[in-house]
């Protein structure tokens, strides 16, 4: 069991669906959505939310700074 539990919030309208966060995520939490946003991009979202450890890797590599990361100690 991971020591931390995390969650991310993606600003889906600003996301350009580059997929760099998908590759950067060590626990494979993020996927590109089937739906598209207003600009026609497949935005990133938490597909496997339980696995998120709030490590901020996705936020660091995001070129458009659309990811906000939250983390709590696992109880």
């Amino acid at each position: 069991m991971a020591k931390f539990k995390g969650a991310i919030v993606v600003d889906t309208e600003k996301c350009k669906g580059c997929g760099l966060c998908v590759v950067a995520c060590p626990t494979k939490v993020i996927e590109l959505a089937r739906d598209v946003n207003g600009k026609g991009y497949h935005y990133a979202h938490m597909a496997n939310a339980d696995a998120c450890i709030g490590c901020s890797s996705c936020g660091l590599v995001c070129p458009d700074t659309v990811i906000t990361v939250y983390r709590v100690k696992a109880s």
């Binding site: 539990k5 709030g54 939250y70």
Partner: peptide
């Protein structure tokens, strides 16, 4: 609801 509980200001670790 668990995710919504995590997403609050005091748990913020990375943002713009």
């Amino acid at each position: 609801t668990e995710i919504n509980k995590i997403i609050s200001k005091e748990n913020l670790v990375y943002g713009k």
